[in-house]
Protein backbone atom coordinates (compact mmCIF):
# COMPACT_ATOMS: atom_id res chain seq x y z
CA UNK A 1 0.00 0.00 0.00
CA UNK A 2 2.11 2.81 -1.32
CA UNK A 3 0.66 6.24 -1.79
CA UNK A 4 1.70 7.64 -5.12
CA UNK A 5 -0.75 10.30 -6.23
CA UNK A 6 -0.03 12.15 -9.45
CA UNK A 7 2.39 14.97 -8.65
CA UNK A 8 0.34 17.60 -10.48
CA UNK A 9 -2.79 16.70 -8.47
CA UNK A 10 -1.27 16.09 -5.05
CA UNK A 11 -1.53 19.66 -3.67
CA UNK A 12 -4.96 20.18 -5.16
CA UNK A 13 -6.24 16.97 -3.56
CA UNK A 14 -4.91 18.18 -0.19
CA UNK A 15 -6.72 21.46 -0.76
CA UNK A 16 -9.88 19.69 -1.83
CA UNK A 17 -9.99 17.61 1.34
CA UNK A 18 -9.42 20.76 3.41
CA UNK A 19 -12.19 22.57 1.50
CA UNK A 20 -9.57 25.08 0.41
CA UNK A 21 -9.76 24.45 -3.34
CA UNK A 22 -11.27 27.20 -5.48
CA UNK A 23 -14.73 26.26 -6.76
CA UNK A 24 -13.58 26.59 -10.38
CA UNK A 25 -10.82 24.02 -9.86
CA UNK A 26 -12.94 21.39 -8.20
CA UNK A 27 -14.55 19.69 -11.26
CA UNK A 28 -11.16 18.91 -12.84
CA UNK A 29 -9.78 17.35 -9.64
CA UNK A 30 -12.96 15.43 -8.91
CA UNK A 31 -13.03 14.09 -12.48
CA UNK A 32 -9.43 12.93 -12.09
CA UNK A 33 -10.24 11.16 -8.82
CA UNK A 34 -12.89 9.16 -10.69
CA UNK A 35 -10.41 7.80 -13.21
CA UNK A 36 -7.12 7.60 -11.26
CA UNK A 37 -7.00 4.82 -8.67
CA UNK A 38 -3.86 6.15 -6.92
CA UNK A 39 -5.23 9.65 -6.50
CA UNK A 40 -8.60 8.26 -5.46
CA UNK A 41 -6.90 6.19 -2.77
CA UNK A 42 -4.82 9.19 -1.69
CA UNK A 43 -7.96 11.30 -1.31
CA UNK A 44 -9.70 8.58 0.72
CA UNK A 45 -6.69 8.17 3.00
CA UNK A 46 -6.48 11.93 3.49
CA UNK A 47 -10.14 12.15 4.35
CA UNK A 48 -9.75 9.32 6.86
CA UNK A 49 -6.70 11.05 8.36
CA UNK A 50 -8.60 14.31 8.61
CA UNK A 51 -11.44 12.56 10.40
CA UNK A 52 -9.02 10.83 12.77
CA UNK A 53 -7.21 14.08 13.55
CA UNK A 54 -10.46 15.92 14.13
CA UNK A 55 -11.60 13.17 16.48
CA UNK A 56 -8.30 12.69 18.33
CA UNK A 57 -7.09 16.24 18.62
CA UNK A 58 -9.71 17.73 20.86
CA UNK A 59 -8.65 20.79 22.76
CA UNK A 60 -7.70 20.33 26.40
CA UNK A 61 -9.74 22.44 28.79
CA UNK A 62 -8.43 24.60 31.61
CA UNK A 63 -9.63 23.71 35.10
CA UNK A 64 -12.55 25.76 36.40
CA UNK A 65 -10.48 27.40 39.14
CA UNK A 66 -7.88 28.72 36.71
CA UNK A 67 -9.00 32.36 36.94
CA UNK A 68 -9.35 32.27 40.71
CA UNK A 69 -5.82 30.92 41.12
CA UNK A 70 -4.48 33.51 38.72
CA UNK A 71 -6.15 36.39 40.58
CA UNK A 72 -4.79 35.06 43.88
CA UNK A 73 -1.28 35.08 42.42
CA UNK A 74 -1.83 38.60 41.13
CA UNK A 75 -3.00 39.81 44.54
CA UNK A 76 0.12 38.24 46.04
CA UNK A 77 2.36 40.10 43.61
CA UNK A 78 2.26 43.84 43.90
CA UNK A 79 -0.10 45.81 41.74
CA UNK A 80 1.47 46.95 38.47
CA UNK A 81 3.18 50.28 38.77
CA UNK A 82 1.88 52.61 36.11
CA UNK A 83 4.53 53.61 33.60
CA UNK A 84 3.92 57.32 34.25
CA UNK A 85 4.83 56.74 37.91
CA UNK A 86 8.10 55.14 36.92
CA UNK A 87 9.03 58.05 34.67
CA UNK A 88 8.19 60.54 37.43
CA UNK A 89 10.24 58.59 39.99
CA UNK A 90 13.21 58.44 37.61
CA UNK A 91 13.00 62.20 37.08
CA UNK A 92 12.97 62.78 40.85
CA UNK A 93 16.01 60.56 41.39
CA UNK A 94 17.91 62.36 38.63
CA UNK A 95 17.02 65.77 40.09
CA UNK A 96 18.16 64.66 43.56
CA UNK A 97 21.40 63.35 42.14
CA UNK A 98 22.11 66.60 40.29
CA UNK A 99 21.38 68.63 43.44
CA UNK A 100 23.73 66.42 45.48
CA UNK A 101 26.44 66.88 42.88
CA UNK A 102 26.07 70.68 42.94
CA UNK A 103 26.19 70.82 46.76
CA UNK A 104 29.37 68.71 46.67
CA UNK A 105 31.02 71.05 44.21
CA UNK A 106 29.97 74.44 45.52
CA UNK A 107 31.93 74.83 48.80
CA UNK A 108 35.05 73.25 47.39
CA UNK A 109 35.34 75.16 44.12
CA UNK A 110 38.99 75.90 44.92
CA UNK A 111 39.87 72.22 45.25
CA UNK A 112 39.62 71.36 41.53
CA UNK A 113 41.67 74.47 40.73
CA UNK A 114 44.50 73.36 43.04
CA UNK A 115 44.42 69.80 41.67
CA UNK A 116 44.44 71.27 38.17
CA UNK A 117 47.48 73.37 38.91
CA UNK A 118 49.28 70.47 40.56
CA UNK A 119 48.69 68.31 37.51
CA UNK A 120 50.14 70.94 35.21
CA UNK A 121 53.16 71.34 37.49
CA UNK A 122 53.85 67.61 37.41
CA UNK A 123 53.46 67.65 33.64
CA UNK A 124 55.90 70.53 33.32
CA UNK A 125 58.52 68.79 35.53
CA UNK A 126 58.25 65.56 33.52
CA UNK A 127 58.47 67.44 30.22
CA UNK A 128 61.52 69.40 31.51
CA UNK A 129 63.29 66.20 32.62
CA UNK A 130 62.63 64.60 29.23
CA UNK A 131 63.90 67.75 27.49
CA UNK A 132 67.14 67.68 29.51
CA UNK A 133 67.63 63.98 28.72
CA UNK A 134 67.14 64.51 24.97
CA UNK A 135 68.73 67.98 24.65
CA UNK A 136 71.89 66.86 22.71
CA UNK A 137 69.83 64.84 20.23
CA UNK A 138 67.42 67.75 19.76
CA UNK A 139 70.30 70.17 19.27
CA UNK A 140 71.80 67.86 16.64
CA UNK A 141 68.54 68.13 14.67
CA UNK A 142 68.89 71.92 14.31
CA UNK A 143 70.66 73.28 11.19
CA UNK A 144 74.47 72.86 11.35
CA UNK A 145 74.92 76.36 9.89
CA UNK A 146 74.00 77.94 13.27
CA UNK A 147 76.85 78.41 15.77
CA UNK A 148 76.88 75.99 18.73
CA UNK A 149 75.88 78.76 21.21
CA UNK A 150 73.06 79.85 18.91
CA UNK A 151 71.65 76.32 18.82
CA UNK A 152 71.62 76.12 22.66
CA UNK A 153 69.79 79.44 22.88
CA UNK A 154 67.29 78.43 20.27
CA UNK A 155 66.56 75.18 22.13
CA UNK A 156 66.23 76.87 25.52
CA UNK A 157 64.15 79.74 24.11
CA UNK A 158 61.93 77.45 22.07
CA UNK A 159 61.13 75.12 24.96
CA UNK A 160 60.54 78.05 27.34
CA UNK A 161 58.14 79.53 24.80
CA UNK A 162 56.17 76.30 24.48
CA UNK A 163 55.96 75.93 28.29
CA UNK A 164 54.78 79.54 28.61
CA UNK A 165 52.11 79.10 25.95
CA UNK A 166 50.76 75.91 27.53
CA UNK A 167 50.87 77.45 31.00
CA UNK A 168 49.03 80.62 29.98
CA UNK A 169 46.57 78.52 28.01
CA UNK A 170 45.86 76.35 31.05
CA UNK A 171 45.50 79.28 33.42
CA UNK A 172 43.08 81.18 31.20
CA UNK A 173 41.42 78.13 29.78
CA UNK A 174 37.88 79.12 30.76
CA UNK A 175 38.20 82.66 29.41
CA UNK A 176 39.85 81.31 26.27
CA UNK A 177 37.06 78.80 25.83
CA UNK A 178 34.41 81.46 26.22
CA UNK A 179 36.18 83.73 23.75
CA UNK A 180 36.33 80.91 21.21
CA UNK A 181 32.68 80.02 21.85
CA UNK A 182 33.35 76.50 23.27
CA UNK A 183 30.83 74.97 25.60
Amino acid sequence: MTLMPCAEFEDRILDLVEHQLAVGERPAVEAHLEVCADCGEFARELTALDAALTRELDAPVLPADFDARLWRRIEAESAPRPAADCVERKRQIEAEFAAQLRSLRAPAHWLPAILDGAAYAVLAVVAGLLLMRWAPELAALLPKSLPAGGRDWLLAGGSTGVFLLVGVGAAFRRQLGQAMGWR
Partner: peptide, 11 residues
Protein backbone atom coordinates in the same frame (compact mmCIF):
# COMPACT_ATOMS: atom_id res chain seq x y z
CA UNK B 1 2.78 28.20 31.54
CA UNK B 2 -0.60 29.82 30.88
CA UNK B 3 -0.59 31.08 34.47
CA UNK B 4 2.94 32.44 34.03
CA UNK B 5 2.03 34.07 30.71
CA UNK B 6 -0.88 35.95 32.27
CA UNK B 7 1.23 37.06 35.21
CA UNK B 8 3.71 38.46 32.69
CA UNK B 9 0.88 40.14 30.80
CA UNK B 10 -0.45 41.67 34.02
CA UNK B 11 2.97 43.05 34.89
Amino acid sequence: MTQDVFIKIWK
